[in-house]
Structure formats: C-alpha cells, structure tokens
C-alpha cells in the first residue's frame, strides 16, 4: 500500500494536496484497493459550497459503493472530468486522480488532518480487526 509523504489524510480515507490555497481531494491507495474495480465516480457540482464532513460524491465499484466526505470546507472550483469516462484512473493512480478541488474557506482545517505516518498507523489498526 502506497502512502505519499507530502499529503494529508482523513479518517474516511481521502487524501488532500494543497496547492496555492486550493485543496485537491482524492481517495487513498488503501481505499481504492478496498473498493476494487472502480466503475463510476459521481462528480460534485462546481461552485457548490461545502463544509468539512459533508458527503459530496460517490464512488462505485462492481460490488461496493462508497461515499466521499469532504475533508475540508470551502467552494468547489474544479472537478476531475477525466473520471467521467475513466473512473478506473483511481485504481491505477490514486494520488494523481483527484476527484474535486476546493478553494479553502478555513485553511486551518488542513492541520487537523493526519500526516502520512499517522495515516499509516491508522490503516494498520483499521485493517487489524
């Protein structure tokens, strides 16, 4: 399982990369693995206002469906339209395939997320039961 050092992570297995005040959000390698072959991603609407913890998207594989919770608050400024035709990009390159990007309204929220080491530990305890 791959965990990138420079990203932040949520307990619901989303990753966050912040570039110039914009947070890019996707799901982790751990999450894509648990889901299996991803066949569909429901993309949120650009310009919608979201709060941390909101369920804003859904990912479907053949045998599972998983909600995506936003790890941050703000306004959605971009969605990854490549996923409309190629949802499996998330399986192939989970950390490249962001799902949506958020202009942060509360940048401090980033600090509340886990770093790579904490997330690795979190996954180990999650997987052990």
């Amino acid at each position: 399982m791959e965990i990138l050092k420079n990203l932040k992570y949520s307990k619901t297995h989303e990753w966050v990369r912040v570039e110039e005040g914009i947070a890019y959000v996707g799901i982790t390698d751990f999450a894509q693995h648990a889901l299996g072959d991803i066949v569909y991603v429901e993309l949120p609407e650009v310009d919608s206002e979201i709060a941390k913890g909101d369920e804003i998207s859904n990912i479907e594989s053949v045998k599972a469906a998983s909600p995506i919770f936003s790890p941050v608050s703000g306004t959605i400024v971009k969605v990854n339209e490549d996923l409309e035709d190629d949802a499996e990009l998330i399986n192939h390159k989970p950390y490249d395939a962001y799902i949506f990007a958020v202009e942060l309204s509360n940048p401090e929220e980033i600090e509340e997320l886990m770093d790579a080491d904490q997330y690795e530990e979190f996954c180990e305890t999650e997987g052990s039961h």
Binding site: V39, Y40, E60, S61, V62, K63, A64, A65, P67
Partner: peptide, 11 residues
Amino acid sequence: QAREQHIKRER
C-alpha cells in the same frame, strides 16, 4: 448493483 440495498444498506 452499487445502487441496491444489499450494498448501500441504510444509504
């Protein structure tokens, strides 16, 4: 099937 009750349960 990801729409259905046996996968989505309370959702």
